[in-house]
Computed example of a mutant assay.
Amino acid sequence: MTEERRDSVDHILDQWQRERPDLDLSAMGVFGRVAQVARVVEGRVEEVLNRHGLRSGDFDVLAALRRSGPPYTLIPSELSDMVMMSRAGMTSRLDRLEAAGLVERSLDPADRRSFKISLSEKGREVIDATLTDHAANLAGLASGLAAEDAATLDRLLRDLLGALA
C-alpha cells in the first residue's frame, strides 16, 4: 500500500497491530471505513435537505409518499413501516409536515377510525426538487469511484447486509 493511499483507519490498525498482533483486525478496517463514509455522506445529505427546509425524517416521509405513486396517499401505519419508525414518532412528524403544507390528512372512507396521508401539491414540488438535488449530490459523492468499482462496492455491501440480516 502506498503512503498516499493510507488513511486514518490504517493508522489505527497499525497501532492495534503493534499492541495486539495476536488479533485479526481486518474487519475493523472495513467497518471503520464504512462508518467514516456514512458520517461524511450523512453530513452532505443533511446540507442538501436543509437547503430545502427539510429534516432527514421529513424527507423520508415525503419520499415514501412520492414513490408510492398516484394518488401519493398512504395510511400512517404504512408510512411508519416504510420509514421504520414508531407510530408515535410518525404522528409528530406528520403534524409538522401538515403544518408546513407538505401533506394533507383526511379520514379514510373505508375505516373512519383511520386517516389517510396525502402528498400536497406543495409537498410534491418540494420532494421533487429535493430529490433532484439529492440524487446529484450522491452522484457527486460517488464520482471518486469508477463505475465498475461502484457496482462492485454496491454488490459487496448488499451481500454484507444480507449476511447481517
Rank of each mutant, 00 (worst) to 15 (best):
L141H: 11
L138E: 06
R66D: 13
P109N: 12
L141C: 06
E42T: 00
R6E: 05
R6Y: 00
L107A: 07
E148P: 05
D22Q: 12
V45M: 03
A88E: 13
M82F: 14
L131W: 11
V103P: 00
D95C: 09
F115Y: 08
E19F: 13
L13G: 02
M90L: 14
L25V: 10
L65Y: 00
G123A: 03
G144Y: 11
L25R: 01
T132V: 08
L79F: 04
S120C: 12
M90K: 06
F115V: 13
E121P: 04
R96L: 10
E78H: 04
D133R: 13
A139C: 14
G69M: 08
A142F: 12
V83F: 03
L141R: 14
P109V: 14
R39S: 06
V61H: 08
N50Y: 01
R113L: 06
M1H: 09
A38I: 03
A142W: 10
L25I: 11
G57V: 06
P76K: 02
L49M: 01
E148L: 08
A100R: 12
G144K: 06
A27C: 09
M28E: 04
T2G: 15
L107R: 15
E47S: 04
T130L: 01
A27M: 06
R67M: 09
M1I: 07
A129L: 06
A151M: 05
L25S: 02
V40K: 14
A64Q: 05
D159P: 05
V34A: 15
R33H: 09
A163D: 09
E125D: 13
D24M: 02
T130Q: 03
L153K: 02
A163N: 12
M90A: 09
R51S: 01
V37S: 11
R20C: 10
R20Q: 07
S143G: 05
G29M: 02
A142S: 11
F115M: 12
V126C: 08
D133A: 10
D111Q: 03
H11R: 15
A150S: 12
L157E: 07
L138T: 02
D128K: 10
A129W: 03
R158K: 14
S143T: 10
M28S: 07
V48K: 12
L145H: 08
S68P: 11
L62T: 08
V9T: 15
L153I: 10
D24N: 07
L107P: 01
A146I: 09
P76R: 09
E47I: 00
A64K: 01
G57D: 09
D111G: 05
A64C: 05
V9H: 10
